[in-house]
């Protein structure tokens, strides 16, 4: 009787173990195909697994860029898979079978903003350096950096958080229009911190933590939207003290702001 109970318990534990591992492997990756331009946790896993077997040497940041693309193609070539640089079901299955992924290690270090790698054969604890800040999971056009996104989100939130979404995108677009304009500094930071250029810098509101809406508005501006129609100035007619700003040719009014050239 005792032996039978032990056998049943052992069988139960074995079944549960198999079930658990089956759940784990089905959890690996999402169902979607991953290609260039994709962003997200499944891209983080893809990069970490490719790095584990030394195909990917770049930063694990969850952004499927060219570095990930070439690493994936090389992996596909080595394992006799169709070489298209897209992680479809077969590629993901093969990758899962030949690599390991320590999700907790990767996610913890990403959350802390640490610099780290995920190579196999080396203790993971030896692959971490303290970092400065958590990277943004946003895919930007090549000419812009995460720093640009962060600074602009702060500026838009400080300057226009009460404005309609269109008005927030327009404020972000004005910053970018200035960067391109010969009359202004040629960097996002230079434009935002030009003395007297933005009220939010003068009164410190630029250091408030921006919300997701402000970030989304900046992303749209960085991706080409310009509701201000090429404006390089804007002002609130109720609070503006400068007479000069009224002399600028006005283009459009959005919310409380008048946008002008």
């Amino acid at each position: 009787m005792k032996k039978s109970i032990i056998k049943i318990l052992a069988l139960f534990i074995l079944i549960m173990g198999l079930y658990g591992s089956a759940v784990d492997s089905s959890k690996a990756f999402s169902a979607r195909d991953l290609g260039r331009g994709a962003t997200g946790d499944d891209v983080i896993e893809l990069q970490a697994r490719l790095q584990y077997i030394s195909f990917y040497k770049g930063t694990i940041d969850g952004k499927f860029g060219y570095g990930t693309y070439w690493a994936l193609r090389n992996f596909q070539e080595k394992y006799g898979l169709p070489i298209d640089g897209v992680a479809g079901a077969n590629t993901k299955k093969k990758l899962t079978s030949v690599s390991e992924y320590n999700e907790k290690f990767v996610m913890d270090n990403l959350a802390k903003g640490n610099q780290f790698t995920h190579y196999g054969g080396t203790p993971l604890s030896a692959q971490v350096k303290a970092g400065a800040s958590k990277p943004e999971q946003a895919h930007l056009p090549s000419k812009y950096s995460e720093q640009d996104l962060k600074l602009m989100a702060n500026a838009v939130y400080g300057e226009a958080r009460g404005e309609p979404y269109e008005g927030q995108v327009a404020v972000a677009a004005v910053i970018l229009n200035r960067v391109e304009h010969p009359d202004f500094p040629n960097t996002v930071g230079g434009v935002i911190f030009q003395p007297g250029a933005f009220t939010a810098v003068a009164d410190g509101q630029i250091w408030l933590t921006p919300n997701e809406r402000a970030k989304e508005a900046v992303l749209d501006a960085l991706n080409g939207w310009d509701p201000s129609e090429n404006s390089i100035y804007y002002f609130n007619p109720v609070t503006a003290t400068s007479k000069w700003i009224w002399s600028r040719p006005q283009v459009k009014k959005i919310g409380m702001h008048i946008f002008c050239h």
């Binding site: 260039r36 331009g37 994709a38 962003t39 997200g40 499927f64 999971q137 946003a138 895919h139 930007l140 056009p141 997701e212 989304e216 992303l219 991706n223 080409g224």
Partner: peptide, 13 residues
Amino acid sequence: EEARENDNAWHFV
């Protein structure tokens, strides 16, 4: 030409 994924949307070019 290209596409970029962000939180809520994809941007296509």
